[in-house]
């Protein structure tokens, strides 16, 4: 028989991405077996993170400071804003170390089927940021999907009157990719955006 508290813990763990009821049970047992070394530090870490991590009012990134460490860094290029769908995309671009400007996290993409409109995303805030600051270029780094590109075109429309260059990431052959294994859509887009060698 499983006690109510353990049952509750398993139920909470099974709500995490990648965990079902069986794997949640295994995780719960592992935590209970390593109470001092893992469970209590994890609980404290979770409580602390929930307490101090907040959304940046400027770019909608998550950080312990307000504004976030990216927005607070004066050495970054204030003329460029990179628009991403989610915080995981921001982390992915930041990991490359090749972008030195600021970010703007939309929190999703426009979707007619799911009823997600511009007001559900932070697009009006992006337009305000672009108008107010010294921004000269907005780089739209959204997924190469129908919804991602619809959002990219919508952002370009919104920023048309601001006299700001709106660019987007190239679509094509990935580094290390073999042409033989590429899907038709990627290959056709790569051919369309070919450049002089």
């Amino acid at each position: 028989m499983i006690g109510t508290e353990i049952e509750h813990l398993i139920k909470l763990l099974s709500r995490l991405p990648g965990l079902g009821p069986r794997s949640a049970r295994r995780v719960a047992l592992h935590l209970l077996k390593n109470r001092e070394s893992l469970m209590l530090p994890l609980a404290q870490g979770l409580a602390r993170a929930a307490d101090v991590i907040e959304e940046c009012p400027s770019c909608h990134n998550l950080d312990t400071v307000k504004p976030c460490s990216v927005c607070a860094n004066p050495s970054r290029d204030a003329t460029q804003i990179c628009v991403v769908e989610d915080i995981s995309d921001l982390w992915a671009i930041e990991k490359t170390g090749s972008f030195k400007g600021y970010y703007h996290v939309l929190g999703g993409t426009l979707s007619a089927l799911d009823g997600i409109g511009p007001e559900d995303l932070s697009i009006p805030h992006l337009v305000r940021r672009a108008k107010e600051g010294a921004v000269r270029e907005v780089i739209v780094a959204l997924n190469a999907t129908i919804d991602g590109q619809t959002t990219a075109h919508y952002i370009a429309d919104c920023l048309q009157a601001c006299n700001i260059a709106v660019t987007q990431l190239a679509h094509g052959v990935p580094i290390g990719g073999q042409i033989d294994y590429l899907d038709d859509g990627t290959l056709a887009t790569a051919l369309k955006s070919r450049k002089a060698v």
């Binding site: 129908i146 590109q149 429309d157 038709d184 859509g185 887009t189």
Partner: peptide, 18 residues
């Protein structure tokens, strides 16, 4: 058949497909 490449770069075609 994939038609994504034909429409992704053109906002009007993209809207028509949707």
């Amino acid at each position: 058949e994939s038609h994504t490449a034909d429409v992704l770069s053109d906002p009007v075609r993209l809207t028509a497909l949707q």
